[in-house]
Amino acid sequence: MNAQKAASTLLDISHIDMVFDTPKGPFTALKGVDLKISKGEFVSLIGHSGCGKSTVLNIVAGLYQATTGGVVLNGKEVREPGPERAVVFQNHSLLPWLTAYQNVELAVKQVFGRSKSKSETKEWIEHNLELVHMEHAMHKRPEEISGGMKQRVGIARALSMQPEILLMDEPFGALDALTRAHMQDSLMEIQQELNNTVIMITHDVDEAVLLSDRIVMMTNGPEATIGEILDINLERPRDRLALAEDLEYTRLRSEVLKFLYEKQRKVENISKHKKKKEASGSKKSFQAA
């Protein structure tokens, strides 16, 4: 399975640098980010706050333009946002004046236009809402449903575009632990069924290990890059209860924790000292660290 995946690269992020123009001068957020993702793979991005995870995702989405380097999807360079790279935003970002159904409808009509008939469109919208178990509240407005339900609709909207790759920026970050567990299970189920390619940003180590095929761990910024990549070869479908006592799971989990709280803490300190000696003006990095 893994060998097969490795054979077909879907997304190629190559040598990305990202420099932001700030009032205090240029700020290099990313330096030399390199990553290849295969079809059907679930990749998590993990790293300390402010290291540049969202920046990577936004570049892949086309919402930001990398300063140097580029992103190639299916052999075509990414230059602007598009529905083949659907994004699930952190705070659902549903249009508050539309019902769950209409929110998905906007996406479906825009992406499929006239290639789907009226009844096909309706069916497809309902199918996607059923996928996230939202069929009972299809015609409710965002303000009438809970945070977890909103996030489900957001995912349904993204899935309904039939994206080549699904980009999720801390999709469950704003949810309570129980709802989050439900959502993770739903997401695993859906991914099992549709075999989507997914990049997901998370702060949650358990979430990363439970869901991913690979965990990409980022070093601290500025000039953040990929520190280590961890392959997660746990059997699918995965069950959170069974895994809790699984030795391999525990080992992988502590790998990630080690990276975050041992290796990256050290690097952070070193870079601080370095920066002080260099006395470069970018105070922003100290705040971020």
Binding site: E80, P81, P83, A86, V87, F89, S93, L95, Q110, V111
Partner: peptide, 13 residues
């Protein structure tokens, strides 16, 4: 909200 504008950009409205 910026996110809503981004939704529109992703959809290429």
């Amino acid at each position: 909200e910026k996110d809503l504008v981004n939704v529109s950009r992703v959809l290429r409205l």
